[in-house]
Design a protein around this nucleic acid. Sequence first.
DNA 1: CCTACCGATCGGTAGG
DNA 2: CCTACCGATCGGTAGG
Lengths: 193, 193
Amino acid sequence: MTRNGRGHSRDDVVRAAGRLFASRGYHGTSMRDLGRELGLLGSSIYSHISGKQDLLVEVVERGATLFEASARTALARPGTSAERLGAFISGHLDVVLDHVDEARTFLNEADALEPESRTRVLAARDHYEAALRTLLEQGIADGSIRADLDPALAGIFILSVVNAVERWYRPQGRLDRPAVVDEITRFVAGGVA
Amino acid sequence: MTRNGRGHSRDDVVRAAGRLFASRGYHGTSMRDLGRELGLLGSSIYSHISGKQDLLVEVVERGATLFEASARTALARPGTSAERLGAFISGHLDVVLDHVDEARTFLNEADALEPESRTRVLAARDHYEAALRTLLEQGIADGSIRADLDPALAGIFILSVVNAVERWYRPQGRLDRPAVVDEITRFVAGGVA
DNA sequence: CCTACCGATCGGTAGG
DNA sequence: CCTACCGATCGGTAGG
Protein backbone atom coordinates (compact mmCIF):
# COMPACT_ATOMS: atom_id res chain seq x y z
CA MET A 1 0.00 0.00 0.00
CA THR A 2 1.96 2.99 -1.28
CA ARG A 3 1.00 6.41 -2.52
CA ASN A 4 -0.68 6.77 -5.83
CA GLY A 5 -0.26 10.50 -6.34
CA ARG A 6 -3.84 11.25 -5.31
CA GLY A 7 -3.16 11.34 -1.58
CA HIS A 8 -5.03 9.50 1.16
CA SER A 9 -8.48 10.02 2.61
CA ARG A 10 -9.21 9.89 6.31
CA ASP A 11 -10.93 6.59 5.67
CA ASP A 12 -7.72 5.16 4.17
CA VAL A 13 -5.90 6.10 7.37
CA VAL A 14 -8.52 4.55 9.65
CA ARG A 15 -8.58 1.34 7.62
CA ALA A 16 -4.81 1.04 7.63
CA ALA A 17 -4.84 1.64 11.39
CA GLY A 18 -7.41 -1.13 11.73
CA ARG A 19 -5.14 -3.51 9.86
CA LEU A 20 -2.19 -2.79 12.13
CA PHE A 21 -4.15 -2.67 15.39
CA ALA A 22 -5.73 -6.01 14.51
CA SER A 23 -2.43 -7.71 13.73
CA ARG A 24 0.03 -6.10 16.16
CA GLY A 25 -2.23 -4.49 18.73
CA TYR A 26 -2.59 -0.82 19.61
CA HIS A 27 0.54 -0.65 21.76
CA GLY A 28 2.49 -2.65 19.20
CA THR A 29 1.70 -0.16 16.44
CA SER A 30 3.62 3.12 16.14
CA MET A 31 2.58 6.12 14.11
CA ARG A 32 5.66 5.53 11.99
CA ASP A 33 4.51 1.94 11.32
CA LEU A 34 1.20 3.37 10.18
CA GLY A 35 2.95 5.94 8.01
CA ARG A 36 4.98 3.20 6.35
CA GLU A 37 1.78 1.25 5.66
CA LEU A 38 0.40 4.32 3.88
CA GLY A 39 3.62 5.34 2.17
CA LEU A 40 4.19 8.52 4.15
CA LEU A 41 5.82 9.76 7.31
CA GLY A 42 4.37 9.21 10.76
CA SER A 43 4.08 12.93 11.33
CA SER A 44 2.06 13.37 8.13
CA ILE A 45 -0.80 11.36 9.58
CA TYR A 46 -1.60 14.22 11.92
CA SER A 47 -3.06 16.18 9.00
CA HIS A 48 -5.87 13.60 9.00
CA ILE A 49 -6.39 12.98 12.71
CA SER A 50 -5.57 14.62 16.00
CA GLY A 51 -4.08 11.66 17.88
CA LYS A 52 -3.35 7.94 17.83
CA GLN A 53 -6.16 7.29 20.30
CA ASP A 54 -8.65 8.81 17.83
CA LEU A 55 -7.80 6.06 15.39
CA LEU A 56 -8.41 3.34 17.96
CA VAL A 57 -11.74 4.87 18.96
CA GLU A 58 -12.83 5.05 15.35
CA VAL A 59 -11.82 1.49 14.45
CA VAL A 60 -13.42 0.06 17.57
CA GLU A 61 -16.57 2.07 17.00
CA ARG A 62 -16.85 0.74 13.46
CA GLY A 63 -16.65 -2.76 14.90
CA ALA A 64 -19.34 -1.95 17.45
CA THR A 65 -21.65 -0.56 14.75
CA LEU A 66 -21.24 -3.65 12.59
CA PHE A 67 -22.11 -6.01 15.45
CA GLU A 68 -25.07 -3.90 16.52
CA ALA A 69 -26.50 -3.80 13.01
CA SER A 70 -26.06 -7.55 12.68
CA ALA A 71 -27.89 -8.20 15.95
CA ARG A 72 -30.73 -5.86 15.03
CA THR A 73 -31.25 -7.67 11.73
CA ALA A 74 -31.23 -11.11 13.35
CA LEU A 75 -33.68 -10.10 16.09
CA ALA A 76 -36.09 -8.50 13.63
CA ARG A 77 -36.16 -11.59 11.46
CA PRO A 78 -39.56 -13.32 11.22
CA GLY A 79 -39.81 -17.05 11.93
CA THR A 80 -38.99 -19.26 14.88
CA SER A 81 -36.57 -18.31 17.62
CA ALA A 82 -34.32 -21.12 16.41
CA GLU A 83 -34.12 -19.44 13.01
CA ARG A 84 -33.35 -16.11 14.64
CA LEU A 85 -30.58 -17.74 16.67
CA GLY A 86 -29.17 -19.18 13.45
CA ALA A 87 -29.33 -15.76 11.84
CA PHE A 88 -27.59 -14.21 14.84
CA ILE A 89 -24.73 -16.69 14.65
CA SER A 90 -24.39 -16.42 10.89
CA GLY A 91 -24.51 -12.62 11.06
CA HIS A 92 -21.84 -12.61 13.73
CA LEU A 93 -19.58 -14.77 11.58
CA ASP A 94 -20.07 -12.41 8.65
CA VAL A 95 -18.89 -9.48 10.77
CA VAL A 96 -15.96 -11.42 12.16
CA LEU A 97 -14.84 -12.78 8.77
CA ASP A 98 -15.72 -9.91 6.42
CA HIS A 99 -14.52 -7.14 8.72
CA VAL A 100 -11.67 -8.89 10.49
CA ASP A 101 -9.77 -5.77 11.42
CA GLU A 102 -12.66 -3.88 12.98
CA ALA A 103 -14.02 -6.98 14.71
CA ARG A 104 -10.66 -8.01 16.09
CA THR A 105 -9.84 -4.55 17.32
CA PHE A 106 -13.30 -4.24 18.87
CA LEU A 107 -12.93 -7.59 20.61
CA ASN A 108 -9.28 -7.41 21.68
CA GLU A 109 -8.15 -3.81 22.02
CA ALA A 110 -10.89 -2.24 24.14
CA ASP A 111 -8.51 -2.16 27.11
CA ALA A 112 -6.24 0.24 25.24
CA LEU A 113 -9.08 2.79 25.03
CA GLU A 114 -9.21 5.75 27.37
CA PRO A 115 -11.85 5.44 30.12
CA GLU A 116 -14.67 7.34 28.45
CA SER A 117 -14.75 5.53 25.12
CA ARG A 118 -13.84 2.27 26.85
CA THR A 119 -17.02 2.54 28.92
CA ARG A 120 -19.08 3.19 25.79
CA VAL A 121 -17.61 0.14 24.07
CA LEU A 122 -18.18 -2.14 27.05
CA ALA A 123 -21.77 -0.92 27.13
CA ALA A 124 -22.14 -1.79 23.44
CA ARG A 125 -20.77 -5.25 24.14
CA ASP A 126 -23.22 -5.71 27.03
CA HIS A 127 -26.04 -4.61 24.78
CA TYR A 128 -25.04 -7.15 22.17
CA GLU A 129 -24.88 -9.91 24.78
CA ALA A 130 -28.30 -8.88 26.05
CA ALA A 131 -29.73 -9.24 22.56
CA LEU A 132 -28.46 -12.81 22.35
CA ARG A 133 -29.79 -13.53 25.85
CA THR A 134 -33.23 -12.25 24.83
CA LEU A 135 -33.18 -14.56 21.89
CA LEU A 136 -32.32 -17.55 24.07
CA GLU A 137 -35.07 -16.63 26.51
CA GLN A 138 -37.55 -16.56 23.63
CA GLY A 139 -36.38 -20.04 22.73
CA ILE A 140 -36.96 -21.25 26.27
CA ALA A 141 -40.39 -19.63 26.29
CA ASP A 142 -41.48 -21.34 23.07
CA GLY A 143 -39.97 -24.68 24.09
CA SER A 144 -37.28 -24.92 21.39
CA ILE A 145 -34.57 -24.54 24.04
CA ARG A 146 -34.34 -26.69 27.19
CA ALA A 147 -35.85 -24.92 30.19
CA ASP A 148 -32.98 -25.60 32.60
CA LEU A 149 -30.51 -23.74 30.41
CA ASP A 150 -28.91 -20.64 31.93
CA PRO A 151 -29.48 -18.10 29.14
CA ALA A 152 -26.77 -15.71 30.35
CA LEU A 153 -24.16 -18.45 30.50
CA ALA A 154 -25.23 -20.06 27.23
CA GLY A 155 -24.96 -16.65 25.57
CA ILE A 156 -21.40 -16.32 26.79
CA PHE A 157 -20.56 -19.82 25.54
CA ILE A 158 -21.98 -19.09 22.10
CA LEU A 159 -20.10 -15.80 21.84
CA SER A 160 -16.91 -17.54 22.95
CA VAL A 161 -17.24 -19.93 20.03
CA VAL A 162 -18.14 -17.39 17.34
CA ASN A 163 -15.62 -14.76 18.49
CA ALA A 164 -12.81 -17.29 18.22
CA VAL A 165 -13.62 -18.23 14.64
CA GLU A 166 -11.37 -15.60 13.11
CA ARG A 167 -8.45 -17.12 15.01
CA TRP A 168 -8.56 -20.41 13.13
CA TYR A 169 -10.79 -20.05 10.06
CA ARG A 170 -8.94 -20.01 6.73
CA PRO A 171 -11.00 -19.24 3.61
CA GLN A 172 -8.91 -21.75 1.61
CA GLY A 173 -9.28 -24.40 4.32
CA ARG A 174 -11.10 -27.70 4.46
CA LEU A 175 -14.48 -26.13 5.28
CA ASP A 176 -16.18 -23.20 3.60
CA ARG A 177 -18.11 -20.63 5.54
CA PRO A 178 -21.61 -22.17 5.28
CA ALA A 179 -20.15 -25.45 6.53
CA VAL A 180 -18.63 -23.67 9.52
CA VAL A 181 -21.89 -21.87 10.24
CA ASP A 182 -23.64 -25.21 10.03
CA GLU A 183 -21.20 -27.00 12.38
CA ILE A 184 -21.42 -24.20 14.93
CA THR A 185 -25.19 -24.04 14.74
CA ARG A 186 -25.44 -27.79 15.25
CA PHE A 187 -22.93 -27.71 18.09
CA VAL A 188 -24.80 -24.88 19.76
CA ALA A 189 -28.19 -26.37 19.03
CA GLY A 190 -27.10 -29.60 20.70
CA GLY A 191 -25.90 -27.57 23.67
CA VAL A 192 -29.10 -25.64 24.16
CA ALA A 193 -31.85 -27.90 22.81
CA MET B 1 4.29 -5.28 46.23
CA THR B 2 7.25 -3.35 47.64
CA ARG B 3 10.63 -4.35 48.95
CA ASN B 4 10.91 -6.13 52.23
CA GLY B 5 14.62 -5.81 52.81
CA ARG B 6 15.29 -9.39 51.74
CA GLY B 7 15.47 -8.65 48.04
CA HIS B 8 13.70 -10.46 45.23
CA SER B 9 14.22 -13.86 43.69
CA ARG B 10 14.17 -14.50 39.97
CA ASP B 11 10.83 -16.21 40.50
CA ASP B 12 9.39 -13.02 42.03
CA VAL B 13 10.41 -11.14 38.91
CA VAL B 14 8.90 -13.70 36.54
CA ARG B 15 5.65 -13.78 38.48
CA ALA B 16 5.38 -10.00 38.56
CA ALA B 17 6.07 -9.95 34.82
CA GLY B 18 3.27 -12.48 34.36
CA ARG B 19 0.88 -10.23 36.23
CA LEU B 20 1.67 -7.24 34.04
CA PHE B 21 1.84 -9.12 30.75
CA ALA B 22 -1.53 -10.68 31.52
CA SER B 23 -3.22 -7.39 32.32
CA ARG B 24 -1.53 -4.89 29.99
CA GLY B 25 0.12 -7.12 27.41
CA TYR B 26 3.81 -7.47 26.60
CA HIS B 27 4.05 -4.30 24.52
CA GLY B 28 2.03 -2.38 27.08
CA THR B 29 4.43 -3.26 29.89
CA SER B 30 7.70 -1.38 30.32
CA MET B 31 10.65 -2.51 32.38
CA ARG B 32 10.05 0.55 34.56
CA ASP B 33 6.44 -0.59 35.12
CA LEU B 34 7.79 -3.94 36.19
CA GLY B 35 10.33 -2.26 38.45
CA ARG B 36 7.56 -0.25 40.10
CA GLU B 37 5.58 -3.46 40.67
CA LEU B 38 8.59 -4.90 42.50
CA GLY B 39 9.61 -1.72 44.32
CA LEU B 40 12.83 -1.15 42.44
CA LEU B 41 14.16 0.56 39.33
CA GLY B 42 13.68 -0.80 35.83
CA SER B 43 17.41 -1.13 35.36
CA SER B 44 17.75 -3.24 38.51
CA ILE B 45 15.75 -6.04 36.94
CA TYR B 46 18.67 -6.82 34.66
CA SER B 47 20.53 -8.36 37.56
CA HIS B 48 17.93 -11.16 37.45
CA ILE B 49 17.39 -11.58 33.73
CA SER B 50 19.13 -10.68 30.49
CA GLY B 51 16.24 -9.14 28.58
CA LYS B 52 12.52 -8.37 28.55
CA GLN B 53 11.89 -11.10 26.01
CA ASP B 54 13.34 -13.67 28.45
CA LEU B 55 10.55 -12.85 30.84
CA LEU B 56 7.89 -13.37 28.21
CA VAL B 57 9.40 -16.69 27.16
CA GLU B 58 9.48 -17.88 30.74
CA VAL B 59 5.92 -16.86 31.59
CA VAL B 60 4.54 -18.37 28.39
CA GLU B 61 6.51 -21.56 28.93
CA ARG B 62 5.09 -21.90 32.44
CA GLY B 63 1.62 -21.63 30.93
CA ALA B 64 2.46 -24.27 28.34
CA THR B 65 3.77 -26.64 31.01
CA LEU B 66 0.64 -26.26 33.11
CA PHE B 67 -1.67 -27.02 30.20
CA GLU B 68 0.44 -29.99 29.10
CA ALA B 69 0.44 -31.51 32.59
CA SER B 70 -3.31 -31.03 32.85
CA ALA B 71 -3.91 -32.77 29.52
CA ARG B 72 -1.63 -35.67 30.42
CA THR B 73 -3.51 -36.24 33.69
CA ALA B 74 -6.90 -36.15 31.99
CA LEU B 75 -5.88 -38.55 29.23
CA ALA B 76 -4.34 -41.02 31.69
CA ARG B 77 -7.48 -41.10 33.79
CA PRO B 78 -9.23 -44.46 33.91
CA GLY B 79 -12.93 -44.66 33.13
CA THR B 80 -15.10 -43.78 30.16
CA SER B 81 -14.06 -41.30 27.48
CA ALA B 82 -16.88 -39.06 28.68
CA GLU B 83 -15.26 -38.95 32.12
CA ARG B 84 -11.92 -38.18 30.57
CA LEU B 85 -13.47 -35.34 28.57
CA GLY B 86 -14.96 -33.99 31.78
CA ALA B 87 -11.57 -34.22 33.46
CA PHE B 88 -9.95 -32.44 30.52
CA ILE B 89 -12.40 -29.55 30.73
CA SER B 90 -12.21 -29.29 34.47
CA GLY B 91 -8.40 -29.45 34.40
CA HIS B 92 -8.29 -26.72 31.80
CA LEU B 93 -10.47 -24.49 33.94
CA ASP B 94 -8.19 -25.09 36.91
CA VAL B 95 -5.21 -23.89 34.89
CA VAL B 96 -7.08 -20.90 33.52
CA LEU B 97 -8.50 -19.84 36.90
CA ASP B 98 -5.68 -20.80 39.30
CA HIS B 99 -2.85 -19.60 37.06
CA VAL B 100 -4.55 -16.68 35.32
CA ASP B 101 -1.38 -14.79 34.49
CA GLU B 102 0.51 -17.67 32.91
CA ALA B 103 -2.58 -18.96 31.10
CA ARG B 104 -3.55 -15.55 29.77
CA THR B 105 -0.03 -14.75 28.63
CA PHE B 106 0.27 -18.17 27.01
CA LEU B 107 -3.04 -17.71 25.21
CA ASN B 108 -2.81 -14.05 24.24
CA GLU B 109 0.82 -12.94 23.98
CA ALA B 110 2.41 -15.65 21.85
CA ASP B 111 2.57 -13.21 18.94
CA ALA B 112 4.96 -11.02 20.91
CA LEU B 113 7.46 -13.88 21.11
CA GLU B 114 10.48 -13.99 18.83
CA PRO B 115 10.19 -16.55 16.02
CA GLU B 116 12.04 -19.44 17.66
CA SER B 117 10.15 -19.57 20.94
CA ARG B 118 6.95 -18.60 19.17
CA THR B 119 7.24 -21.72 17.03
CA ARG B 120 7.77 -23.87 20.12
CA VAL B 121 4.70 -22.41 21.81
CA LEU B 122 2.49 -22.88 18.78
CA ALA B 123 3.67 -26.49 18.65
CA ALA B 124 2.72 -26.95 22.30
CA ARG B 125 -0.70 -25.51 21.54
CA ASP B 126 -1.14 -27.89 18.61
CA HIS B 127 -0.11 -30.78 20.82
CA TYR B 128 -2.71 -29.80 23.40
CA GLU B 129 -5.41 -29.56 20.74
CA ALA B 130 -4.37 -32.96 19.41
CA ALA B 131 -4.84 -34.46 22.88
CA LEU B 132 -8.39 -33.16 23.03
CA ARG B 133 -9.07 -34.40 19.51
CA THR B 134 -7.83 -37.88 20.46
CA LEU B 135 -10.21 -37.86 23.37
CA LEU B 136 -13.15 -36.92 21.15
CA GLU B 137 -12.21 -39.62 18.67
CA GLN B 138 -12.22 -42.17 21.49
CA GLY B 139 -15.71 -40.99 22.35
CA ILE B 140 -16.84 -41.46 18.77
CA ALA B 141 -15.27 -44.93 18.72
CA ASP B 142 -17.06 -46.04 21.89
CA GLY B 143 -20.35 -44.47 20.84
CA SER B 144 -20.61 -41.84 23.57
CA ILE B 145 -20.16 -39.07 21.00
CA ARG B 146 -22.21 -38.76 17.83
CA ALA B 147 -20.40 -40.22 14.84
CA ASP B 148 -21.04 -37.32 12.45
CA LEU B 149 -19.18 -34.89 14.73
CA ASP B 150 -16.04 -33.31 13.31
CA PRO B 151 -13.55 -33.95 16.14
CA ALA B 152 -11.10 -31.25 15.03
CA LEU B 153 -13.81 -28.62 14.87
CA ALA B 154 -15.49 -29.72 18.09
CA GLY B 155 -12.12 -29.53 19.83
CA ILE B 156 -11.73 -25.95 18.68
CA PHE B 157 -15.23 -25.08 19.89
CA ILE B 158 -14.60 -26.60 23.30
CA LEU B 159 -11.30 -24.76 23.66
CA SER B 160 -12.97 -21.51 22.59
CA VAL B 161 -15.43 -21.87 25.45
CA VAL B 162 -12.97 -22.87 28.17
CA ASN B 163 -10.29 -20.36 27.13
CA ALA B 164 -12.79 -17.54 27.40
CA VAL B 165 -13.82 -18.41 30.96
CA GLU B 166 -11.19 -16.21 32.60
CA ARG B 167 -12.64 -13.24 30.73
CA TRP B 168 -15.97 -13.36 32.52
CA TYR B 169 -15.68 -15.65 35.56
CA ARG B 170 -15.67 -13.89 38.92
CA PRO B 171 -15.00 -16.01 42.03
CA GLN B 172 -17.52 -13.96 44.00
CA GLY B 173 -20.12 -14.22 41.24
CA ARG B 174 -23.45 -15.99 40.99
CA LEU B 175 -21.89 -19.35 40.14
CA ASP B 176 -19.02 -21.14 41.84
CA ARG B 177 -16.44 -23.08 39.92
CA PRO B 178 -18.02 -26.54 40.06
CA ALA B 179 -21.26 -25.02 38.78
CA VAL B 180 -19.41 -23.46 35.86
CA VAL B 181 -17.63 -26.72 35.09
CA ASP B 182 -21.00 -28.44 35.20
CA GLU B 183 -22.70 -25.93 32.89
CA ILE B 184 -19.86 -26.11 30.39
CA THR B 185 -19.75 -29.90 30.50
CA ARG B 186 -23.48 -30.09 29.90
CA PHE B 187 -23.31 -27.51 27.12
CA VAL B 188 -20.47 -29.39 25.46
CA ALA B 189 -22.02 -32.80 26.10
CA GLY B 190 -25.18 -31.62 24.41
CA GLY B 191 -23.10 -30.40 21.48
CA VAL B 192 -21.19 -33.61 20.98
CA ALA B 193 -23.51 -36.38 22.23
C1' DC C 1 20.24 -3.10 43.60
C1' DC C 2 21.39 2.01 42.56
C1' DT C 3 23.61 5.90 39.85
C1' DA C 4 24.17 7.65 35.73
C1' DC C 5 23.82 7.07 31.54
C1' DC C 6 23.30 5.37 26.11
C1' DG C 7 21.07 5.48 21.41
C1' DA C 8 16.63 4.54 19.58
C1' DT C 9 12.04 5.31 19.31
C1' DC C 10 7.76 7.07 20.97
C1' DG C 11 3.51 10.45 20.16
C1' DG C 12 3.16 14.81 18.67
C1' DT C 13 3.94 20.01 16.93
C1' DA C 14 5.41 24.33 14.21
C1' DG C 15 5.87 26.01 10.03
C1' DG C 16 5.80 25.71 5.50
C1' DC D 1 2.35 15.97 3.08
C1' DC D 2 7.43 17.07 4.28
C1' DT D 3 11.27 19.21 7.16
C1' DA D 4 12.91 19.67 11.34
C1' DC D 5 12.23 19.20 15.48
C1' DC D 6 10.39 18.54 20.87
C1' DG D 7 10.35 16.20 25.52
C1' DA D 8 9.33 11.73 27.22
C1' DT D 9 10.03 7.13 27.38
C1' DC D 10 11.80 2.86 25.67
C1' DG D 11 15.12 -1.45 26.48
C1' DG D 12 19.43 -1.88 28.04
C1' DT D 13 24.59 -1.17 29.92
C1' DA D 14 28.87 0.17 32.75
C1' DG D 15 30.44 0.53 36.99
C1' DG D 16 30.05 0.36 41.49
